[in-house]
């Protein structure tokens, strides 16, 4: 080990979720990310760490932000990045997912970055390939790089994670961002609340180590961090909540509701935002309170760190044919 560099103690082949990572492993990823934040602000943003490595972004679900973020991360580390979009609706699930994995494995990629609409699909795929796999979001299960970039954003603004009070608000039921963040924040010693109407909360969510609230005023009281979640359009009109108007009235973040939080509470959102649904435009754009743009910046750095630590674990010797 080179003196002064971070310890290479990331014992996992894949990054499938936050669940199961130790505080040290999370800290390692965040510390590595810090160095890339600075690099990304330079004129020359490129390194050659991943020179010769192939990264395939395999997206079974539409994404612009996350895919672009991973693509930039790979390219800035000097890797070759290929984007593959597969319409999940056009494939037969299960068998074809594995067929896709076998096909890609034959092309010898080093890292697969995978997003899939079904929970557990990325893990299934990871069991069938030889390379490292990063979960870029599977169904309502996990989105580990989002939780890491959120943690990095918080750590830079609040200088710690331990002891912070964090409220995650909105569609917890369908949110992989919420699950990854709950796992990460609990692991790092923060206290987590969830705030949502009951129709948007999964059963026994309190067993995940969160306090449950159904009222924004109570749920945001004295919190350090307010994380808003996106409410999908198809869930706004009478199925899970009656209307946008009612949702915004009771659960949308505006200055009145924010008043319950600490005066320096940070506002976060994984994007893309529905302005006027879960968050008021003025709050979202408040440069003193909102960390939403910074989250996007941290995203590239965190993904670079993840690519770095996983590729370090890969063998540098080509497999015997």
């Amino acid at each position: 080990m080179v003196a002064g560099s971070a310890p290479l103690a990331f014992p996992h082949r894949h990054l499938l979720g936050i669940e199961g990572l130790s505080p040290d492993e999370i800290t390692l990823l965040l510390d590595r990310s810090e160095s890339y934040v600075e690099q990304n602000r330079q004129i020359d943003k490129k390194q050659s760490l991943l020179r010769g490595r192939t990264i395939i972004n395999l997206f079974f679900e539409n994404s612009t932000r996350t895919r672009t973020s991973f693509e930039l991360a790979g390219k800035r580390l000097g890797g070759d990045v290929i984007n593959m979009s597969v319409q999940a609706s056009s494939i037969k699930k299960g068998e074809t997912l594995i067929d896709t994995a076998m096909t890609l494995t034959a092309m010898h990629p080093d890292v697969l970055v995978v997003r899939h609409p079904e929970s557990g699909a990325v893990q299934l795929l990871s069991e069938k390939v030889d390379c490292a796999v990063i979960n870029a979001g599977d169904g309502s299960h996990e989105h580990p790089t989002q939780a890491l970039l959120d943690a990095l954003t918080i750590r830079r603004r609040k200088e710690k994670l331990q002891g912070l009070l964090v409220a995650i608000c909105g569609d917890i039921l369908h949110s992989r961002v919420a699950r990854s963040n709950i796992a990460l924040l609990n692991t790092m010693g923060a206290r987590v609340r969830v705030v949502a109407p009951r129709t948007l909360l999964p059963a026994e969510i309190e067993r995940l180590g969160v306090e449950v609230f159904h009222d924004m005023a109570a749920g945001l009281k004295d919190v350090d961090i307010v994380m808003m979640l996106r409410l999908q359009t198809e869930r706004m009109h009478g199925s899970f909540v009656p209307s946008i108007r009612e949702y915004f009235h009771f659960f949308g973040l505006d200055y009145a509701k924010l008043g319950a939080a600490k005066p320096d509470a940070l506002i976060m959102h994984p994007g893309p935002m529905n302005r006027g649904v879960e968050i008021d435009t003025a709050v979202a754009d408040d440069i003193d309170r909102s960390a939403i743009r910074q989250q996007v910046e941290m995203g590239v750095a965190v993904r670079m760190a993840c690519l770095e630590v996983l590729t370090r674990n890969l063998s540098n010797i080509a497999p015997a044919k």
Binding site: H237, G238, S239, V241, P242, S243, R245, E246, H249, F250
Partner: peptide, 15 residues
């Protein structure tokens, strides 16, 4: 409880 009593979409209970 549901819009136009059609049994499908919830009305705005809170409001």
């Amino acid at each position: 409880a549901t819009k136009a009593l059609k049994g499908r979409e919830l009305t705005e209970f809170g409001l």
